[in-house]
Nucleic acid binder design. Structure first.
Lengths: 246, 246
DNA sequence: AAGCCTTTGTGAATACGCGCACAAAGTCGC
DNA sequence: GCGACTTTGTGCGCGTATTCACAAAGGCTT
């Protein structure tokens, strides 16, 4: 994605691989668990096991942040928690707005994982007049007409889109226009955004379909499944649509 | 993950790359949208744009399923929908059980994306006696004690874990013991499962943290952000824990 | 019927990520 | 104070993924 800037500084300090960034939160969670148990020091082997990764990978990931381990001993849990938190930007607070207060939006509003990691939900917005004013998880739902005002007024930097698919792109355009540069999208659509805006997608249906693919493989026998005749002309090409439509 | 079986047959028919599998559902969704609009034929360029990927990548992905395009014309939408659906295993029905009926479980139970893609929710389970018997999205919540009976009796092949973190591993062990080989995990823990069982994880908090990382970079200036002094000895090493704890 | 134009399918080059294996570095026991 | 032992940090090779660029293939026009 950003290949050119990787040679400006040489490792640590700049250019942490995307794959590493994606694992840091996992390490962080494992470290928090260790911390609760009162563990002061952990080896790469132990932490890797807790995080479900290879220990060499863990060490390489951590080496991108600097040399925070002690050879022969391991890593100091507390210090590592701090370093990873800082690298991820969790030592500062991030203001989040949730747009769309359906079932999913409600679940997100009540999700404990927000507050505990420096994410503060500062707004719940919906287009449904009947919802506006209702209180969800101790916060009143506001009308989406006030989106721009809320986003800039409360310095929202991350927007969580939990609207129906049809509304998502329009909402996205508006939050971006209002200054948001990070979007977490739960709507089942591909959002298009200008350069400089990050979008991450969470899509239940896609995850299930990936599982179904592997499940189908497994069902075909342990040694190898051949997908149903993939070079043939299926008889009756017209009616196969029904099989997958709602 | 499975490198040895890739040479048994030569491309198509066997060994679709994991990265490709992960994109097929995206293509499928884009194709459904086109279908609703009455589009009969689509070029790789158009479909790639709709799916948010490079067109060469799209063509290579599709080539793993076989040669379903016509040079000079493009792909027949309906036929491609069928081929991808079949490859993903969506031409058959998959029986899903949702374990944990909190906010998130409720949202999942009501999620339309299940039914519309061949996923049938056949059970909602929870440990809370107060919830058992309640109806959620037209389905009665059942007690988790009946998990084994429900899973084998109703031929559940995919388990969705939406329990609190503390309960997830135990629930996972039970569903696996009962015969489930595909798990979609929403609990913020790393599940360990025996070989042959697939686990996919959806984790809101991790996604937010990844966004925060990039947001922090952007905030440091358009040309390059240097993370706060990553080789230094921070003064007062003891109190930095508070910054990220609940 | 022939040639032009569009679009696929893929070879080749490049970038990226992973994991092994080991040297360097530091601790701990004696 | 020294040697043995542990564990980090990383060089290296391998496999996968991505993208470019183009030849092959097919339709369409004249």
């Amino acid at each position: 994605m950003t290949p050119r800037q990787n040679r400006t500084r040489d490792r640590a300090e700049r250019g942490i691989p995307e794959a590493t960034v994606a694992r840091l939160p996992v390490y962080l969670r494992a470290l928090h668990t260790l911390q609760e148990r009162g563990v002061a020091t952990v080896s790469s082997e132990e932490l890797a096991a807790a995080a479900g990764v290879n220990s060499a990978k863990l060490r390489k990931d951590l080496s991108h942040l600097g040399s925070y381990g002690t050879r022969g001993v391991g890593y100091e849990v507390e210090y590592l928690v701090y370093q990873i938190s800082r690298e991820l930007g969790l030592t500062q607070d991030w203001v989040v707005a949730i747009i769309g207060v359906g079932n999913l939006g409600r679940a997100l509003a009540g999700y404990g994982g927000f507050a505990s990691r420096g994410f503060r939900v500062a707004g719940l917005l919906d287009a449904d007049e009947a919802l506006v004013g209702q209180e969800i998880s101790g916060m009143a739902v506001e009308h989406i007409d006030r989106l721009e005002e809320i986003i800039s007024g409360r310095r929202v930097s991350i927007a969580v889109i939990a609207t129906p698919a049809g509304a998502a792109q329009k909402v996205c355009d508006r939050v971006v226009a209002a200054g948001v540069t990070s979007v977490l999208n739960f709507a089942p659509v591909v959002l298009s955004v200008p350069d400089g805006v990050d979008v991450r997608k969470v899509d239940l249906s896609i995850e299930l379909q990936i599982l179904a693919f592997h499940e189908q493989r497994k069902a075909g026998g342990p040694d190898g499944y051949a997908p149903p005749a993939s070079g043939e002309d299926p008889p009756g090409a017209a009616q196969y649509v029904e099989a997958v439509e709602a």
